[in-house]
Design a protein around this nucleic acid. Sequence first.
DNA 1: GCCGTTCTTGCATAAACATGCAAAACATGC
DNA 2: GCATGTTTTGCATGTTTATGCAAGAACGGC
Lengths: 252, 252
Amino acid sequence: MLTEERHQFIRDRLAADGRVLAGELASRFGVSEDTVRRDLRELAKAGQLRRVYGGAVTLAPFAAATISQRSSHAVEEKLRLAKAAVGVLAAGQTLFIDGGTTNEAIARAIPRDIELTVATNSLGVALALADLPLVELIVLGGRYVRDLGTCVGGDTLTAVAQLGADLFFLGSCGLDASRGVTAFDSAEAEVKRAMAKNSAGIVIAATNDKLATAAPYRVAAPDAIRHLVVERTAPAAILDDFQRQGAEIRFA
Amino acid sequence: MLTEERHQFIRDRLAADGRVLAGELASRFGVSEDTVRRDLRELAKAGQLRRVYGGAVTLAPFAAATISQRSSHAVEEKLRLAKAAVGVLAAGQTLFIDGGTTNEAIARAIPRDIELTVATNSLGVALALADLPLVELIVLGGRYVRDLGTCVGGDTLTAVAQLGADLFFLGSCGLDASRGVTAFDSAEAEVKRAMAKNSAGIVIAATNDKLATAAPYRVAAPDAIRHLVVERTAPAAILDDFQRQGAEIRFA
DNA sequence: GCCGTTCTTGCATAAACATGCAAAACATGC
DNA sequence: GCATGTTTTGCATGTTTATGCAAGAACGGC
């Protein structure tokens, strides 16, 4: 039996039952439990299931409900970035957080015992923060765009205009040392610009594939970035360019 | 049985009954009470429940107060109510939907193939609708209140004021044929009043325990209710009172 | 105050786990 | 065809985790 066939069977079984047992799969496939565990580990790394002691279960409902397509990509890297990104937080701060899977990961990585005020136009981020007892959560409403997972439009801009934040966690965008921060969508860019304008500093957590890419709509100048959180494997030349323009580099 | 499955069961049971007993869970899972206590301790540490002598209860005092009286069948009843409630919908309509578990159930019961415009201040409702391809979703932002699961405040009122809807699905409130619709919270009531004002008709889906109860804050007069969705076992006398004031009764 | 119940803590054990390694199956280049 | 490198798999190793049991502490009713 091919490895891929086992993986497919596990996915199907998870979709049907919501959980699988390592021992059960081993006898079903006629392979050792070690092999099954390896399968489960790989699928977990690919973001297709959650590993638990004794087997695996489907991902948390909120994770499945949000932008599931993109979030299965580079889960581990985003988790590492998120953990590093929350390091810039200080108690009592006010934040803007916009959309994107990296920002959702950051929201989930915020510890329960820190007091913050957070304004977000992302449903996924709002959901991640809805449970935190010490976080004052402000939802920035507006027209919901399915593909982005965020609210945009005039209502959103109005709401942003009434707020001011210490930090703005800017997500899902292109990043280039000469062109700065750019977005793929006009309405999305408008909201990002408003948030950037009303924030004292911008924080960007970017996977390597976001570095040195540009999109049509300008959001912020490169020297507006205060904290840049990147992977350890990020190209040093690009980081130098950002650092020269005032960004503080943080490695995940 | 996986540890994770026990945890999930405990969460579900808490959501349904508002409380769990350690001994009861132990015999149901077929494990020792020590194991159950360990589970409860972990969930408490994760902030998902509050540990009490003999078992555990839900965190939110508001939710606990209203939920504790519900039977474990309340989930099924809400599902039945929700299915009946979506029967009043027609393609192309614009809706307000506010918070409450019944409204979340209604949102989940909306079929994928109906075109609607929905404005909601409930995160749960928004999440349920985020996937539906034909629903234009407008999120009504504002200060998020954890116990209600909704956004309230001036920003929310401003956003509501700019919209008009055919129907308003009004949730989580007291219902009395003489006093009308009433809410437990002042800020919540304000938003409900604004939604009621800007809607052509009000729809209320109420479990039996909601009928003939009243809360401090008035939201709408009894004759503002256009559709009242109730269980088959609802007391006829109460229904008559509402019907005389213009409500159309629908049975789940 | 007492007593039974519930809880925490420490400990033992078995199961599940990660890791390193070697054999087998497979592909690749000459 | 044969040597070489890669992937997959199972096994042995040591580690971690889950669980139940026992003993003592904490709680609640009387």
